[in-house]
Design a protein around this nucleic acid. Structure first.
Lengths: 153, 153
DNA sequence: GCTCTTATTGCAACGAGTTGCGATAACGGC
DNA sequence: GCCGTTATCGCAACTCGTTGCAATAAGAGC
């Protein structure tokens, strides 16, 4: 059994889950899942396309994005908007967390739900607004970049 | 004096401010400022282009976006990313506020700096992260949409 | 295995936004 | 008012992502 095979096996129930919904298991979806199995953390849509093309050069953007939509429905990935409004996909079931992005260096971190309870509760009580934590991206400058700037000037 | 003239006058010091920086006052910039003078609240980049074209049909996207960059440097506009990661420009000097966007109906509200002090202070002390409040967009579902959903189901 | 339904694909065209580059035109100096 | 410097313009090409549509192919039933 090759390494790739093992990686796919990790996601084996996806096929069943698709079928259960009347959806289909296609070669293109297999490729994307193979790619996703090798990701931990965040990836941009463009990067997923590129990696898929390394396995199958005929990979098409529309197919990838549409498959990602389906997988998001299944709860396998989630997406948020990072720097420049680019899509960032997050793999794995670590539910309900936001992101912290440094606008200087571009690094991003996960933001645990507990770190934003104040904001969430505040907006719910004051405005009745239900914050989608997993879509929350907080932009700013990280400690390292703030320090670097201080040292430079 | 025409209405258009009066609108431009409101922004008359922009010309001086540009010159002071060695930048130039061009017909294209005059058009965009005329458009911006008629905006209060938020506009998308595409909308600004469309409105500029109504004054001067030869308006080019690159010029508009580049001018917006300059105006952002001057502090006249600021931009954030709304739904779908689209750019939203905000006119007027109401400094340092974020946005609240409903992912169902698309409506957006301003988020006062005071409403997010908890988050900002928390991230500064726990991670040394300096949040850019004016770039903060909080997505979720507004009270009206939550209520509508409750009634429907 | 064959057929039929219809989910999915790939193409082509589009929308938002950015970038490199040669040509144009502000505007400060004379 | 003309000249030279160089900021700005407009084009063309590109990136990321989305959408409509005709053609393809999963997979369920037989």
């Amino acid at each position: 059994m090759t390494a790739e095979h093992r990686a796919v096996d990790r996601w084996s129930d996806v096929r069943r889950r698709l079928r259960a919904r009347g959806l289909r298991w296609t070669p293109q979806r297999r490729v994307l899942l193979e790619v996703l199995a090798g990701v931990n953390g965040h990836v941009t849509g463009a990067e997923l396309i590129e990696r898929s093309r390394r396995i199958d050069p005929t990979t098409t953007p529309s197919t990838v994005y549409r498959t990602l939509d389906v997988l998001e429905d299944l709860g396998l990935v989630s997406h948020s908007h990072g720097l420049e409004g680019r899509q960032e996909f997050h793999v794995g079931a670590a539910s309900d967390h936001g992101h912290l992005v440094c606008s200087d260096c571009g690094t991003s971190w996960e933001l645990a739900a507990e770190e934003v309870t104040g904001l969430v509760d505040g907006l719910r009580s004051s405005r009745g607004f239900a914050v989608a934590v997993d879509h929350l991206t907080v932009e700013g400058r990280c400690a390292a970049c703030v320090a670097a700037e201080g040292a430079a000037s």
